[in-house]
Design a protein around this nucleic acid. Sequence first.
RNA 1: GCCGGGGUGGCCGAGCGGCCUAAGGCGACGGGCUUGAGACCCGUUGCCCCGUUAGGGGCGCGCGGGUUCGAAUCCCGCCCCCGGCGCCA
Length: 462
Amino acid sequence: MAVWSVLALLRENPEELKGHVAKRLMDTSIVDLAYQLDVEWRRLQTEINELRHKHNLITRSVAKASSEGERRLLLEEAKGLLKVIEEREARLADVEAKRFEVLNSLPNLVEDDVPVGDENASVPVEFWGVPRVWSGYLEQFRDQVERYGFKVEYELIDWKPRGHADMLEEVLMLGDTVKAGEVAGSRFYYLFDDLVWLDFALLLYAIDKLTSKGYTLVLPPYMLRYKVMRGVVDLGAFRDAIYKVEGEDLYLIATSEHSLAALYYGEEIYDDELPIKLAGISPCFRKEAGAGSRDLKGIFRVHQFHKVEQFVFSKPEDSRKMLEEIIGNAKEMFQELGLPYRIVNIASGDLGAPAAKKYDLEVWMPAQGKYREMVSASNCTDWQSYRLGIRMIRRKGMTREYVHTLNSTAIASTRTITAILENYQEPDGTVVIPKALRKYLEPFEKAPKEYVKPRTPTSKHE
RNA sequence: GCCGGGGUGGCCGAGCGGCCUAAGGCGACGGGCUUGAGACCCGUUGCCCCGUUAGGGGCGCGCGGGUUCGAAUCCCGCCCCCGGCGCCA
C-alpha cells in the first residue's frame, strides 16, 4: 500500500512533522489542522461504510422478497437509511474537501543535511574555476568565499567589465529590451543574430551532453491542465509564476519539469524500469510576480526563456544519489563552458514546498561582483508523485510505493548568456565564445564562431 | 468546428437495470513440480476505511452530476480516442 511519506508521518508522529514545517519557517498549526481533519475523515468514512453496508444488505434482499408486503417494507427501510447516509455523505464531502486542501498545502519533508534557517543560512559546499575579479570587488568576492572557509584562486583584473545589460544594448547592440517593453512589457526582450545563435548553441550543447549520457530527449506540452499543474507546483508558484490562458483550463509551463513530471500522471511504473531519465527542452514562461524591481535590467530575470531540463523518476532509495548525479551533470557543463561557479546547499527556509533538498549552481558574475543562480537541482522525493498519482511497483512482492522525482536545470539560455557576456568579456567589449559551444555554431554560415564583436552605434541592427 | 463510432482492471475482452461478488484470456507476482529453464497445477494481482493479526466492510467500469430501493448497464454535461467533412502552420 502506497502512502505519501508526509501523510505517514502526520499519522505516526505529528510533532516530528511539525519540526519539518518549522524548519521551513512556516506556521506549524497547519499540521494540527491536517491531523484533525484526517482523523475526522477516517471516522466519517468508517461510519458511512457501516451504513452503506446495511443499505446494501436490504437492497439485495428486495429482488428476493417473497411477497409484495415484504417488498414494500424493505423499500421503506432502505429509503429511511438513504436519508441518514445522504446527510453523512454531505459531511464527509465537506471534510474531505478541507482535508484535501490542507494536505495539499503541506510542504515536503526536509532532508537531514539541509541547513536550517532563512536564505542566509544556505551554505556553499563547493567552488570551481578561477573567477575574474575586478579590484573594486575583491573584498566582496573574498567575503563570499572565505566566510564559508574556502580558498579560491582568482584572476585579478583592473578594468571593470560591463554588465550584461549594457553589453546587450550598448556594446554588442544585439538586444532590445526597450522596444520589447513597449510592445510586451518589462522583462521581455528581443535578441538578435549572434546572441540567438548563442542561445541555440547552448541548448544544443545541453541536449548533446544529456542524450550522450542516456537521457531521453523530450519535446513536451507547453501548457497543462489545472489538475496536473497543481500536482507539480505549490500555491505560491501558481500565484507568482504561472500564467493562465484566458477562458481555457490551461496553464503555461514555467519549466519543462512540469510537463515531464506529468508524463506518468496517474500511472504505475515497475521498479525495474527505473530510473527514467529525461531531457526536456521548452520555452519557460514566468510571471515573476514576486520579484518586484529585482534584476529589472537585461535578460537575467525574464518572463520567457529557453531551457533544457533534466528530470528523473527514481526509486526512493536512489533519489539522494540521483540528486548528486543531476547536479553533477550541471557542474560538468559549466566546467566545459568555463564559467566559475559555486554549489550552494539551499537552506530549509528557502526551499520550495515540493523540494526536500536543493542545490543551486551559482556562476561568478564579474560585473556584479556576485555569484548568481544559473542552475537549480531539487529532490522532490514523493511530493509530486503523490499529487500526480505516480507509483512504483516492486516486482518482488508486487508492493506499491510512490516514485521519487528530481529535476535540475541543464542550461537556461538567457541566464547562461548573461554569464558568458560577463565572464568572456575582453576590455574592448569583445566576447569570446566558449570553446564547448563552437561545434554547434560551425555548421552555420552566419553564426559567430570565436567572438561576438562590439558593433558601432551607427546601425541599430542589420 | 460539424457528423458518426467508441472509452470496462497492467493489457485484451465479455456484460448493456438486481445471479456483476465485473466472465474469460494474456501478462506480472508467490507457491508446487524440475538439477535449472520451459510446460503444467494452485493461489494472488485497483483504491479506501476498521482491525496488532485473522479478517470485516465500503467504493471502483474515461471524469462529474442525475434517475432508482438498486446503475458498467438509463439520462445530462465534460474530457479523450478512432473515422469522415471543414479549416489550418
